[in-house]
């Protein structure tokens, strides 16, 4: 039930907005996040954006994974 899905913000006005995943649009409440802009990604849970996704951190997690292998092989 804590399912949350990364979705791209396509519209936002105050606490109301629209997010999109694979071409499907969903309404989203932005009461729980502040600095989210159109084009950025959020985790959508039960109709609310609960956190902004951090592109840099995502890349770092992936490069950390690759590094583990490079150092060991």
């Amino acid at each position: 039930m804590c399912l949350g899905v990364p979705m791209r913000v396509i519209e936002r006005e105050g606490t109301n907005g629209l997010v999109e995943l694979g071409g499907v649009k969903y309404e989203a409440g932005f009461q729980l996040v502040d600095d989210v802009k159109v084009g950025e990604y959020v985790i959508l849970h039960a109709g609310f954006a609960i956190q902004k996704l951090d592109e840099k951190e995502a890349q770092e997690t992936l490069s950390l994974l690759r590094e583990v292998f490079e150092n060991s092989t």
């Binding site: 804590c2 409440g29 729980l32 849970h45 039960a46 609310f48 609960i50």
Partner: peptide, 9 residues
């Protein structure tokens, strides 16, 4: 019903 993910909503 739910945990800390849901209760803020």
């Amino acid at each position: 019903v739910g945990f800390e993910t849901t209760s803020p909503t």
